[in-house]
Protein backbone atom coordinates (compact mmCIF):
# COMPACT_ATOMS: atom_id res chain seq x y z
CA UNK A 1 0.00 0.00 0.00
CA UNK A 2 1.08 3.47 -0.46
CA UNK A 3 0.22 4.03 3.09
CA UNK A 4 1.58 6.80 4.99
CA UNK A 5 4.40 5.46 6.96
CA UNK A 6 3.79 1.76 6.67
CA UNK A 7 5.42 0.58 3.50
CA UNK A 8 4.62 -2.98 3.74
CA UNK A 9 6.04 -4.15 0.60
CA UNK A 10 8.84 -2.64 2.27
CA UNK A 11 9.89 -4.57 5.09
CA UNK A 12 8.98 -7.66 3.23
CA UNK A 13 8.28 -8.43 -0.37
CA UNK A 14 10.54 -5.67 -1.51
CA UNK A 15 11.22 -6.92 -4.97
CA UNK A 16 7.81 -8.15 -5.91
CA UNK A 17 5.90 -5.08 -4.82
CA UNK A 18 8.27 -2.68 -6.46
CA UNK A 19 7.06 -0.93 -9.55
CA UNK A 20 7.16 -3.16 -12.58
CA UNK A 21 10.82 -2.95 -13.49
CA UNK A 22 11.27 -1.49 -16.91
CA UNK A 23 14.04 -3.67 -18.23
CA UNK A 24 16.14 -1.56 -20.40
CA UNK A 25 18.83 -4.12 -21.06
CA UNK A 26 17.98 -4.70 -24.69
CA UNK A 27 16.22 -1.52 -25.70
CA UNK A 28 19.13 0.77 -24.84
CA UNK A 29 19.05 3.78 -22.59
CA UNK A 30 17.36 6.12 -25.05
CA UNK A 31 14.38 3.86 -25.50
CA UNK A 32 14.22 3.23 -21.79
CA UNK A 33 14.22 6.96 -21.08
CA UNK A 34 11.38 7.62 -23.50
CA UNK A 35 9.29 4.74 -22.19
CA UNK A 36 9.80 5.69 -18.60
CA UNK A 37 8.99 9.38 -19.17
CA UNK A 38 5.82 8.50 -21.07
CA UNK A 39 4.85 6.20 -18.24
CA UNK A 40 5.37 8.98 -15.70
CA UNK A 41 3.25 11.36 -17.77
CA UNK A 42 0.46 8.77 -17.92
CA UNK A 43 0.61 8.43 -14.15
CA UNK A 44 0.47 12.19 -13.64
CA UNK A 45 -2.56 12.29 -15.93
CA UNK A 46 -4.36 9.67 -13.82
CA UNK A 47 -3.42 11.59 -10.67
CA UNK A 48 -4.98 14.73 -12.12
CA UNK A 49 -8.17 12.80 -12.88
CA UNK A 50 -8.29 11.56 -9.29
CA UNK A 51 -7.80 15.06 -7.88
CA UNK A 52 -10.42 16.44 -10.27
CA UNK A 53 -12.82 13.73 -9.15
CA UNK A 54 -12.16 14.61 -5.51
CA UNK A 55 -12.94 18.24 -6.30
CA UNK A 56 -16.31 17.16 -7.62
CA UNK A 57 -16.93 14.85 -4.69
CA UNK A 58 -16.77 17.79 -2.29
CA UNK A 59 -19.95 18.45 -0.31
CA UNK A 60 -21.94 20.95 -2.32
CA UNK A 61 -19.63 20.56 -5.31
CA UNK A 62 -16.48 22.44 -6.23
CA UNK A 63 -18.09 25.86 -5.86
CA UNK A 64 -18.87 25.40 -2.19
CA UNK A 65 -15.55 23.76 -1.77
CA UNK A 66 -13.75 26.77 -3.15
CA UNK A 67 -15.92 29.47 -1.63
CA UNK A 68 -16.29 27.82 1.74
CA UNK A 69 -19.27 26.63 3.74
CA UNK A 70 -20.52 30.17 4.40
CA UNK A 71 -21.08 30.99 0.74
CA UNK A 72 -24.59 32.09 -0.23
CA UNK A 73 -26.47 30.39 -3.11
CA UNK A 74 -26.07 33.58 -5.16
CA UNK A 75 -22.33 33.55 -4.72
CA UNK A 76 -22.26 29.90 -5.73
CA UNK A 77 -24.31 30.46 -8.85
CA UNK A 78 -22.12 33.38 -9.84
CA UNK A 79 -18.99 31.32 -9.24
CA UNK A 80 -20.29 28.41 -11.29
CA UNK A 81 -21.11 30.61 -14.23
CA UNK A 82 -17.80 32.45 -14.00
CA UNK A 83 -15.77 29.23 -13.80
CA UNK A 84 -17.62 27.26 -16.42
CA UNK A 85 -18.98 24.75 -13.94
CA UNK A 86 -22.17 24.57 -16.01
CA UNK A 87 -20.16 23.09 -18.89
CA UNK A 88 -19.77 19.36 -19.65
CA UNK A 89 -17.47 17.52 -17.24
CA UNK A 90 -14.85 16.76 -19.91
CA UNK A 91 -14.43 20.45 -20.75
CA UNK A 92 -14.25 21.28 -17.08
CA UNK A 93 -11.53 18.69 -16.63
CA UNK A 94 -9.55 20.07 -19.55
CA UNK A 95 -9.69 23.60 -18.21
CA UNK A 96 -8.71 22.29 -14.76
CA UNK A 97 -5.76 20.54 -16.35
CA UNK A 98 -4.84 23.68 -18.26
CA UNK A 99 -4.95 25.83 -15.13
CA UNK A 100 -2.92 23.31 -13.15
CA UNK A 101 -0.27 23.18 -15.86
CA UNK A 102 0.18 26.95 -15.71
CA UNK A 103 0.58 26.73 -11.95
CA UNK A 104 -2.84 28.19 -11.13
CA UNK A 105 -4.09 26.02 -8.28
CA UNK A 106 -6.70 28.48 -6.97
CA UNK A 107 -6.86 30.66 -3.88
CA UNK A 108 -6.55 29.47 -0.32
CA UNK A 109 -9.35 31.17 1.59
CA UNK A 110 -7.70 30.36 4.87
CA UNK A 111 -4.40 32.03 4.09
CA UNK A 112 -5.74 34.62 1.72
CA UNK A 113 -2.96 33.74 -0.63
CA UNK A 114 -2.69 31.79 -3.88
CA UNK A 115 -2.25 28.08 -3.30
CA UNK A 116 0.86 27.90 -5.45
CA UNK A 117 2.50 30.72 -3.48
CA UNK A 118 1.70 29.00 -0.19
CA UNK A 119 3.14 25.75 -1.44
CA UNK A 120 6.18 27.35 -3.04
CA UNK A 121 7.02 28.85 0.34
CA UNK A 122 6.79 25.55 2.24
CA UNK A 123 7.72 22.78 -0.17
CA UNK A 124 11.49 23.51 0.03
CA UNK A 125 11.37 23.16 3.80
CA UNK A 126 9.62 19.81 3.55
CA UNK A 127 12.17 18.66 0.98
CA UNK A 128 14.93 19.79 3.33
CA UNK A 129 13.48 17.82 6.25
CA UNK A 130 12.81 14.72 4.15
CA UNK A 131 16.20 14.96 2.48
CA UNK A 132 18.04 15.23 5.80
CA UNK A 133 16.11 12.27 7.23
CA UNK A 134 16.87 10.29 4.11
CA UNK A 135 20.59 11.04 4.21
CA UNK A 136 20.82 10.12 7.89
CA UNK A 137 18.76 6.97 7.28
CA UNK A 138 20.84 5.80 4.33
CA UNK A 139 24.06 6.40 6.24
CA UNK A 140 22.79 4.03 8.92
CA UNK A 141 20.76 1.54 6.88
CA UNK A 142 23.34 0.68 4.23
CA UNK A 143 26.16 -0.32 6.58
CA UNK A 144 23.66 -2.03 8.90
CA UNK A 145 22.19 -4.08 6.06
CA UNK A 146 25.61 -5.09 4.76
CA UNK A 147 26.78 -5.98 8.26
CA UNK A 148 23.70 -8.14 8.82
CA UNK A 149 24.14 -9.90 5.50
CA UNK A 150 27.77 -10.70 6.22
CA UNK A 151 26.81 -11.98 9.69
CA UNK A 152 23.66 -13.64 8.45
CA UNK A 153 21.81 -15.95 10.84
CA UNK A 154 24.03 -15.06 13.76
CA UNK A 155 22.78 -13.42 16.94
CA UNK A 156 23.63 -9.88 15.74
CA UNK A 157 21.66 -10.34 12.55
CA UNK A 158 18.75 -11.80 14.45
CA UNK A 159 18.58 -8.94 16.97
CA UNK A 160 19.01 -6.19 14.37
CA UNK A 161 16.24 -7.74 12.24
CA UNK A 162 13.91 -7.87 15.22
CA UNK A 163 14.82 -4.32 16.15
CA UNK A 164 14.01 -3.24 12.59
CA UNK A 165 10.55 -4.82 12.80
CA UNK A 166 9.90 -3.13 16.14
CA UNK A 167 11.03 0.21 14.72
CA UNK A 168 8.86 -0.35 11.67
CA UNK A 169 5.88 -1.17 13.89
CA UNK A 170 6.23 1.97 15.97
CA UNK A 171 4.04 4.79 14.68
CA UNK A 172 6.15 7.83 13.85
CA UNK A 173 4.19 10.08 16.16
CA UNK A 174 4.56 7.67 19.08
CA UNK A 175 8.27 7.47 18.45
CA UNK A 176 8.38 11.26 18.27
CA UNK A 177 6.58 11.53 21.60
CA UNK A 178 9.00 9.11 23.21
CA UNK A 179 11.95 11.07 21.85
CA UNK A 180 10.45 14.29 23.17
CA UNK A 181 9.88 12.70 26.57
CA UNK A 182 13.37 11.24 26.76
CA UNK A 183 15.68 13.64 24.96
CA UNK A 184 13.83 16.89 25.43
CA UNK A 185 11.78 16.62 28.64
CA UNK A 186 14.07 14.45 30.71
CA UNK A 187 17.54 14.97 29.30
CA UNK A 188 16.99 18.45 27.94
CA UNK A 189 19.37 17.81 25.06
CA UNK A 190 17.31 19.16 22.18
CA UNK A 191 14.31 21.46 21.88
CA UNK A 192 10.99 19.76 21.21
CA UNK A 193 9.86 22.45 18.81
CA UNK A 194 11.20 22.67 15.30
CA UNK A 195 12.86 25.87 14.07
CA UNK A 196 10.41 28.43 12.74
CA UNK A 197 10.81 30.94 9.94
CA UNK A 198 9.84 31.53 6.35
CA UNK A 199 13.08 30.71 4.55
CA UNK A 200 15.35 27.70 4.53
CA UNK A 201 18.21 29.81 5.85
CA UNK A 202 16.28 30.62 9.00
CA UNK A 203 15.48 26.95 9.52
CA UNK A 204 19.08 25.93 9.04
CA UNK A 205 20.18 28.61 11.48
CA UNK A 206 18.74 26.54 14.34
CA UNK A 207 20.24 23.10 13.79
CA UNK A 208 19.50 21.86 17.32
CA UNK A 209 15.80 22.15 16.65
CA UNK A 210 16.16 19.97 13.57
CA UNK A 211 17.66 17.03 15.43
CA UNK A 212 14.48 15.47 16.81
CA UNK A 213 12.33 15.92 13.67
CA UNK A 214 15.07 14.51 11.43
CA UNK A 215 15.69 11.61 13.79
CA UNK A 216 12.00 10.80 14.03
CA UNK A 217 11.67 10.86 10.27
CA UNK A 218 14.78 8.75 9.77
CA UNK A 219 13.94 5.78 12.02
CA UNK A 220 11.20 4.20 9.88
CA UNK A 221 13.34 4.67 6.78
CA UNK A 222 16.24 2.91 8.49
CA UNK A 223 13.92 0.08 9.53
CA UNK A 224 12.74 -0.45 5.99
CA UNK A 225 15.95 0.11 4.08
CA UNK A 226 18.22 -1.91 6.32
CA UNK A 227 16.01 -4.86 5.42
CA UNK A 228 16.18 -4.08 1.70
CA UNK A 229 19.91 -3.68 1.91
CA UNK A 230 20.31 -6.90 3.85
CA UNK A 231 18.34 -8.97 1.38
CA UNK A 232 19.92 -7.30 -1.64
CA UNK A 233 23.41 -7.89 -0.22
CA UNK A 234 22.54 -11.48 0.61
CA UNK A 235 21.37 -12.04 -2.97
CA UNK A 236 24.63 -10.68 -4.29
CA UNK A 237 26.81 -12.58 -1.85
CA UNK A 238 25.31 -15.73 -3.34
CA UNK A 239 26.21 -14.72 -6.89
CA UNK A 240 28.83 -16.55 -8.90
CA UNK A 241 30.96 -13.46 -9.41
CA UNK A 242 31.65 -13.37 -5.68
CA UNK A 243 33.14 -16.84 -5.92
CA UNK A 244 35.20 -15.82 -8.94
CA UNK A 245 36.53 -12.81 -7.06
CA UNK A 246 37.42 -14.93 -4.05
CA UNK A 247 39.05 -17.59 -6.24
CA UNK A 248 41.51 -15.03 -7.60
CA UNK A 249 42.60 -14.19 -4.07
CA UNK A 250 40.51 -11.11 -3.31
CA UNK A 251 40.08 -10.69 0.46
CA UNK A 252 36.48 -11.09 1.64
CA UNK A 253 36.34 -7.53 2.94
CA UNK A 254 37.36 -6.20 -0.42
CA UNK A 255 34.92 -8.52 -2.20
CA UNK A 256 32.10 -7.03 -0.13
CA UNK A 257 33.15 -3.41 -0.47
CA UNK A 258 34.41 -3.43 -4.04
CA UNK A 259 32.13 -5.95 -5.77
CA UNK A 260 29.00 -6.59 -3.73
CA UNK A 261 28.26 -3.10 -2.42
CA UNK A 262 27.74 -1.49 -5.78
CA UNK A 263 25.62 -4.31 -7.15
CA UNK A 264 23.49 -4.40 -4.01
CA UNK A 265 22.90 -0.65 -3.98
CA UNK A 266 21.44 -0.49 -7.47
CA UNK A 267 18.06 -2.10 -6.69
CA UNK A 268 17.87 -0.22 -3.40
CA UNK A 269 18.20 3.08 -5.28
CA UNK A 270 15.09 2.21 -7.27
CA UNK A 271 13.26 1.35 -4.05
CA UNK A 272 14.03 4.86 -2.81
CA UNK A 273 11.85 6.32 -5.54
CA UNK A 274 9.13 3.92 -4.65
CA UNK A 275 9.40 4.92 -1.01
CA UNK A 276 8.92 8.66 -1.66
CA UNK A 277 5.16 8.81 -1.01
CA UNK A 278 5.75 7.05 2.29
CA UNK A 279 8.39 9.59 3.22
CA UNK A 280 6.11 12.51 2.36
CA UNK A 281 3.36 10.92 4.44
CA UNK A 282 5.84 10.60 7.30
CA UNK A 283 6.86 14.25 6.87
CA UNK A 284 3.26 15.28 7.44
CA UNK A 285 3.18 13.57 10.81
CA UNK A 286 6.60 14.80 11.86
CA UNK A 287 5.77 18.39 10.88
CA UNK A 288 2.52 18.26 12.77
CA UNK A 289 4.18 16.77 15.84
CA UNK A 290 7.07 19.23 15.98
CA UNK A 291 5.21 22.19 14.51
CA UNK A 292 7.65 22.41 11.61
CA UNK A 293 6.48 24.99 9.08
CA UNK A 294 6.51 22.78 5.98
CA UNK A 295 3.99 21.56 3.49
CA UNK A 296 2.73 18.77 5.75
CA UNK A 297 1.76 21.23 8.43
CA UNK A 298 0.16 23.46 5.82
CA UNK A 299 -1.83 20.50 4.62
CA UNK A 300 -2.85 19.50 8.10
CA UNK A 301 -4.12 22.96 8.99
CA UNK A 302 -5.95 23.07 5.68
CA UNK A 303 -7.63 19.78 6.57
CA UNK A 304 -8.63 21.15 9.99
CA UNK A 305 -10.42 24.07 8.36
CA UNK A 306 -11.64 22.31 5.20
CA UNK A 307 -9.61 24.59 2.93
CA UNK A 308 -10.20 22.52 -0.22
CA UNK A 309 -8.21 24.48 -2.80
CA UNK A 310 -5.24 24.24 -0.49
CA UNK A 311 -5.79 20.52 0.18
CA UNK A 312 -6.16 19.49 -3.45
CA UNK A 313 -3.33 21.74 -4.57
CA UNK A 314 -1.06 20.06 -2.04
CA UNK A 315 -2.17 16.58 -3.14
CA UNK A 316 -1.46 17.44 -6.77
CA UNK A 317 1.96 18.93 -6.07
CA UNK A 318 3.08 16.18 -3.69
CA UNK A 319 1.95 13.47 -6.10
CA UNK A 320 3.74 15.04 -9.03
CA UNK A 321 6.83 15.38 -6.84
CA UNK A 322 6.54 11.68 -6.05
CA UNK A 323 6.20 10.66 -9.67
CA UNK A 324 9.15 12.82 -10.69
CA UNK A 325 11.19 11.47 -7.78
CA UNK A 326 10.48 7.86 -8.75
CA UNK A 327 11.39 8.69 -12.34
CA UNK A 328 14.71 10.15 -11.25
CA UNK A 329 15.43 7.15 -9.03
CA UNK A 330 14.73 4.78 -11.91
CA UNK A 331 16.95 6.75 -14.25
CA UNK A 332 19.69 6.85 -11.64
CA UNK A 333 19.44 3.12 -11.25
CA UNK A 334 19.63 2.66 -15.01
CA UNK A 335 22.72 4.87 -15.13
CA UNK A 336 24.38 2.93 -12.33
CA UNK A 337 23.96 -0.30 -14.28
CA UNK A 338 26.30 -0.65 -17.25
CA UNK A 339 23.83 -3.04 -18.85
CA UNK A 340 21.35 -0.21 -19.38
CA UNK A 341 23.83 2.61 -19.65
CA UNK A 342 25.43 0.91 -22.65
CA UNK A 343 22.75 2.12 -25.04
CA UNK A 344 23.64 5.71 -24.25
CA UNK A 345 26.67 5.67 -26.48
Amino acid sequence: MTTAIPARSGAVEAGAAAPAPVRAARGGFGRFLIRRVLQALAVILVVSVIVFALLHALPGGPARGVLGQQATPEQIAAFEAANGLDQPVVLQYLSFLGRSLTGDLGESYLLNQSVSDAIALRLPKTLLLTGLSLVVAVLVAVPAGIYQAVRRNRAVDYWLSTLAIVAYSTPTFFLGMLLILLLSQNAGLFPAAAPQGTGIAEVLAQPAGLVLPVLTGAVPIVATFSRYMRSSTLDNLGEDYVRTARAKGTAYRRVVLRHVLRNSLTPVVAMLGYYLPVMFGGALVVEQLFNYPGMGLLFWSAAQSSDFPELLGCVLVISVATVVGSLLADLLQALLDPRTRGGLR
Partner: peptide, 23 residues
Protein backbone atom coordinates in the same frame (compact mmCIF):
# COMPACT_ATOMS: atom_id res chain seq x y z
CA UNK B 1 -4.54 -1.02 -14.86
CA UNK B 2 -1.03 -0.62 -13.55
CA UNK B 3 -0.87 3.10 -14.39
CA UNK B 4 -3.96 3.50 -12.22
CA UNK B 5 -2.13 1.68 -9.42
CA UNK B 6 0.99 3.83 -9.96
CA UNK B 7 -1.13 6.97 -9.69
CA UNK B 8 -2.79 5.73 -6.52
CA UNK B 9 0.58 4.96 -5.02
CA UNK B 10 1.95 8.36 -6.01
CA UNK B 11 -0.62 10.07 -3.78
CA UNK B 12 0.59 9.57 -0.22
CA UNK B 13 -2.19 7.71 1.58
CA UNK B 14 -2.29 10.05 4.55
CA UNK B 15 -2.90 13.04 2.29
CA UNK B 16 -5.69 11.24 0.51
CA UNK B 17 -7.22 10.04 3.75
CA UNK B 18 -7.23 13.50 5.26
CA UNK B 19 -8.98 14.91 2.20
CA UNK B 20 -11.53 12.11 2.28
CA UNK B 21 -12.22 12.55 5.97
CA UNK B 22 -13.03 16.21 5.39
CA UNK B 23 -15.55 15.08 2.79
Amino acid sequence: MMRVVDAGIAIPAIFLLLVLSTI
